[in-house]
Design a protein around this nucleic acid. Structure first.
Lengths: 159, 159
DNA sequence: CATCACATGTTATAAGATAACGTTCGAGGC
DNA sequence: GCCTCGAACGTTATCTTATAACATGTGATG
């Protein structure tokens, strides 16, 4: 599994694909893909980076989709709960999931220079963390794995 | 490496040890172990769990060591920067380091029920995250690894 | 004893998140 | 058709977390 996020790709295409996939899945699971929810996901897909709730709210407000914090937080909660987006703890921010629908434990590579975020995958209790949990009897339910550093482009620029 | 934090131990002893070790190391590295910094570390060691900055500030305020947020944040910044404490991103909180002085990449096991936090260790670029970073050319500088679940005690109580 | 780095005191405000309440609206049962 | 219930939404207020900015103190060093 490699990270999705730093390589080039047909962006308008991937936005449309992701949105229609989300729509399909919502229909299948009887989830309400309301205008605000749809637009927030679209915003995250367009920007293709981690965004703060208030940054998203500003855009929604400019478009008349709501101007109070709960508007953004409710949409984000929905997207995160249903696997369409992830929360990046380290940044207090949110990013569209790059492989929604699949069951996975996300891990992130965050560039401290250009703020790009790539999503990759890890295991719930693999590696040393899992070993420590088994040793102590700790039951892992969720893990946050977030790496900070320099993305290929910025690393090269810095060298 | 197993997790430190859930097993029983002589607590007053470990506080005193950790404080004097910190004092020694500050002297060696010419760091100023000021009263506020010392007290904040002591508070974290006493409670032996993750604490919010304002929770710590309340204690400092009650003791006349300062009542404004920067007081707590400056002390915490010092402790984190010098490896005496860690910030837990998932909780927006801070905890004393359980093995300061040693070079390490901390990982945390956080009980969602009793809020206890155990610290263990992981690698900077081990596992699948490291593999993804190498594949893409991402340079990892820091990683956040935080697991949430049930500690041995709470898991047993829930079963 | 000047000076410079570092620490502290204080005020103000930024940034992130949620509680609480009433209203709206569509699906399903009657 | 109409009722009713739950999910979503609108709005106000507030809470928590964090930092900017600037003035003051203080101790080591030359």
């Amino acid at each position: 599994m490699t990270a999705i996020g730093f390589e080039k790709h047909d962006h308008s295409h991937c936005i449309a694909d992701a949105l229609s996939a989300a729509e399909t899945r919502c229909k299948a699971q009887k989830l309400q893909f309301t205008p605000a929810r749809r637009r927030v996901l679209e915003i995250l897909l367009e920007r293709h980076r981690a965004m703060g709730a208030y940054e998203i709210l500003d855009i929604l407000a400019a478009e008349g989709l709501g101007s109070q914090p709960p508007v953004a937080y409710r949409a984000l909660d929905f997207l995160v709960k249903n696997g369409f987006a992830h929360r990046i703890e380290r940044l207090n921010a949110y990013a569209a999931c790059t492989h929604p629908g699949e069951q996975h434990v996300p891990a992130f590579l965050i560039c401290r220079s250009c703020k790009a975020v790539a999503e990759t995958e890890t295991g719930l209790d693999s590696g040393r963390l899992g070993a420590a949990a088994r040793d102590t009897g700790f039951v892992i339910e969720k893990v946050v794995v977030e790496a900070e550093g320099l993305c290929p482009g910025c690393a090269e620029a810095a060298a």
